[in-house]
Design a protein around this nucleic acid. Structure first.
Length: 591
RNA sequence: GGCCCUGUAGCUCAAUUGGUUAGAGCGCCGGACUGUCGAUCCGGAGGUUGCGGGUUCAAGUCCCGUCGGGGUCGCCA
């Protein structure tokens, strides 16, 4: 071993010991004769003192050191004199008096200082990710990520779950997200697909009798990226046999309590609260409400229908809705100009306008207040719990538009008005998602979640009468406004599965071609089973109160799904293409 | 595919809103210094303002195109 201790583990208890430490030069302070190096590793920092009277050779070499050089320093660990203690760092009371210095590797001048004050452009950080990874914030994220995985494995192990790997090379099922394809050399013209999730394999494991499965599984989706979406991401994938929905919820409640205990050291109150999908959309505008703060959506359709404001009355007459929310105490915080910005903002979600009222002396103050009687003004204020100084917003449109616009407005206002502590974790279940929705473009029904989801037991009769009203035995775990897990009770009856395929327009032949292996498996003794998958990356983000998924993945991709460091994806040479029997047919470029 | 933001020294930023030779801090190079810890002090190097075109007496600044990065809508069964 080149080191006797890590930089971070040395304390004053080691005083008097001869130690050897390795790491990166974090900074140097050269006083001509006396010279100080702060040595850094992932455990911490320690000051090394080079005194020519103790080692002329080590001191001379130390003079040539620069940031990010990799060194080994040997010497006596000493307590600092009381007046030399640096209270700013953990090891501020001790230092190593170097008698020997070895330059393990000289570094070029780094493109940026990983522990400097200014965090450089992400672009540059991604190109030199190996330098960026020395940043404590990034290391903290990866350490936390490890702890979550460890807690997960310990938890499931105690409950008799098996961690089982499923194939990366699978069959393409061109429904849902686009697949990443991998050409087969031995089967010219055929392709594997990288898994969007281990969904079908884990169901097959249940048929195989491995009745409690989990996997920390990499998943791939060739779709556009977002701040919280990468083309490859990790989910904690779970499936259980001989269980119902309640068993999954309870099991995952327990997992989360374990995670919170491990990371935060606090007790998560169980059971986690539950909301139906219908209630979530009505109260918060979407199926993943951030409930760290209130500001719930309120319907004022009754007042809107009788007021003198044409936009409102016509919306109600046309079957739309008028809903709003109350930004408490925000009347003075948002100028007309700010509100104009918010109007543009809700426009991105389809809203054609944003009505606003300031509550002033018990009445509404707004350019459109004149269209409302005094009585109706008071009614609106009462409905939204308004008080003087509040700012009320309303959107009048089709129901879906009011939901989308107000949900986004609510999130934005919550953030801008600092209505919550970013480190809070607010976790809840959203239940009873709709099973099917109309695909108007193709004039057919489609599965909301996926076609393997079991209908709510009370709704099985609705296939022929009102399929849009059918509820799924599905559940999402929502945390701070993110979909943090999603799952369902699966169909284990091949007849029900075939009925679902029929219903969403997948003909029997096509179903056999695409999902034959699953249908077949269901015919050979499939137990009732259910499962769920948690987005690991998102959980790391939430524990850190970080809103960028790239900060919790060691080697993430850019928005165009590229890797700035390796420059993947890249062209391949003609021989590789020939072996795969692939000819390129690229769009013409002008140059 | 749409909309929005962004690109100035190795890095983080500035440049009086179109006007002199594009500045500062950190980093880098050289020098001084025996208790610093964001060391200090002295000196120095470093720029095709992403790239290409255009408008103008004059462009880092305005316009068009293009490339990179980011956010978002669509998309993500």
């Amino acid at each position: 071993m080149l080191r006797s201790h890590t930089c971070g583990e040395l304390t004053k208890d080691h005083a008097g010991q001869s130690v050897s430490a390795c790491g990166w030069v974090d900074s140097y302070r050269d006083h001509g004769s006396l010279l100080f190096i702060d040595l850094r590793d992932r455990y911490g920092k320690i000051q090394i003192v080079f005194d020519p009277s103790e080692s002329l050779e080590a001191h001379a070499l130390a003079g040539s050191l620069r940031n990010e050089d990799v060194i080994q320093a040997e010497g006596l660990l000493k307590l600092r004199a009381p007046d030399l203690i640096n209270p700013k760092i953990a090891s501020g009371e001790i230092e190593i008096r170097a008698v020997k210095l070895t330059l393990l590797n000289k570094s070029k001048t780094p493109p940026f200082e990983p522990t400097g004050e200014n965090i450089p452009n992400e672009d540059l950080r991604l190109k030199y990710r190996y330098v960026d990874l020395r940043r404590p914030a990034l290391q903290e994220a990866l350490i936390l990520r490890h702890k979550l995985c460890k807690a997960t494995r310990d938890y499931f192990d105690k409950l008799n779950f098996l961690e089982i790997e499923t194939p990366m090379l699978g069959k393409s099922t061109p429904e849902g997200a686009r697949d990443y394809l991998v050409p087969s050399r031995v089967h010219p013209g055929s392709f594997y697909a990288l898994p969007q999730s281990p969904q079908l394999y884990k169901q097959l494991l249940m048929v195989g009798g491995l009745d409690r499965y989990y996997q920390i599984a990499r998943c791939f989706r060739d779709e556009d990226l977002r701040a919280d979406r990468q083309p490859e991401f990790t989910q904690i994938d779970v499936e259980m046999s001989f269980v119902d929905q309640e068993d999954i919820l309870t099991t995952i409640d327990g997992l989360l309590a374990c995670m919170v205990k491990e990371i935060r050291g606090t007790e998560l109150k169980l059971p986690l609260p539950r909301l139906t999908h219908r209630e979530a959309v009505e109260r918060f505008g979407n199926d993943k409400p951030d409930m760290r703060f209130g500001m719930e959506l309120v319907d004022i359709g009754d007042i809107a229908s009788r007021c003198g404001f044409g936009v409102f009355t016509k919306t109600i007459e046309g079957g739309g809705r008028v809903r709003g929310l109350n930004a408490k105490g925000a009347a003075e915080k948002y100028s007309r100009r700010n509100i104009d910005e918010l109007t543009v903002f809700v426009g991105e979600y389809g809203a054609k306008g944003l009505a606003f009222f300031r509550v002033k002396e018990g009445a509404l103050d707004s350019p459109i207040a004149k269209f409302f009687s005094e009585e109706d003004q008071r009614a609106i204020i009462a409905k939204l719990g308004g008080e003087d100084g509040d700012l009320l917003f309303f959107v009048a449109d089709k129901c879906d538009v009011t939901s989308a616009a107000l949900a986004s407005l609510r999130i934005r206002l919550g953030k801008e008005l600092k209505l919550y502590d970013p480190l809070d974790l607010n976790v809840l279940w959203v239940l009873e998602f709709p099973l099917y929705s109309r695909d108007e473009e193709n004039d057919r029904w489609k599965a909301e979640h996926h076609p393997f989801c079991y209908p709510h037991i009370d709704d099985l009769g609705l296939f022929d009468t009102d399929p849009g009203a059918m509820r799924a035995q599905s559940y999402d775990l929502v945390c701070n406004g993110y979909e943090a897990a999603s799952g369902s009770v699966r169909i284990h009856d091949p007849k029900v599965q075939q009925k679902v395929f029929d219903f969403i327009g997948i003909a029997e032949e096509e179903a056999e071609e695409r999902f034959g292996f699953l249908l077949n498996a269901l015919r050979y003794g499939a137990p009732p089973h259910a499962g769920i998958a948690l987005g690991l990356d998102r959980w790391v983000m939430m524990f850190l109160a970080n809103d960028n998924i790239r900060d919790v993945i060691a080697f993430p991709k850019t928005q165009k799904a590229g890797d700035q460091m390796t420059e993947a994806p890249s062209a391949v040479d003609a021989i590789q293409l020939r072996d795969l029997h692939i000819k390129l047919d690229l769009p013409e470029s002008e140059d």
